[in-house]
């Protein structure tokens, strides 16, 4: 009984979110805010906000010149946003230290 009520509740929740999602642009639509730079000729240009100077367009066009790697994502996470990845490694390090502090074993007395 309780479980069926929960299932119905979350199904309603999923339907509500699907209704919201159906109002977005389709996947790969150039009008999406996450879209990078390519604008096909069939879409009138006034529908598309100015994306030619977005940071994704800059990364796509200039990462080979700025960084030298051909993988744009590696260039972004390791060079343009290098501080982010450095502190991300620090976060991982801190998490391991926290795990060892919680459940770790003392290996110094062996």
């Amino acid at each position: 009984m309780k479980r069926s009520v929960a299932v119905i509740l979350f199904a309603v929740f999923a339907v509500c979110m699907i209704v919201v999602v159906l109002h977005l642009y389709p996947v790969g639509d150039p009008r999406l805010p996450g879209y990078a730079d390519f604008i096909p000729a069939e879409i009138p240009s006034e529908e598309i906000p100015r994306r030619a100077d977005s940071v994704a367009t800059y990364y796509n066009r200039n990462s080979a010149r700025d960084v030298g790697g051909t993988c744009v994502i590696a260039s972004v996470i390791l060079d343009y946003r290098g501080y982010d990845t450095l502190y991300e490694a620090t976060v991982l390090f801190t998490a391991v230290i926290a795990c060892l502090a919680l459940i770790g074993k003392d290996h110094h007395h062996e």
Binding site: A64, V67, G68, G69, T70, A74, S75, L78, D79, G82, T85
Partner: peptide, 18 residues
């Protein structure tokens, strides 16, 4: 030192960081 773009050492600091 930078290598050829697209090569193994093309990225400069990318390789030691990786």
């Amino acid at each position: 030192p930078q290598g050829e773009p697209g090569g193994l050492f093309g990225g400069g600091t990318l390789i030691p960081i990786t």
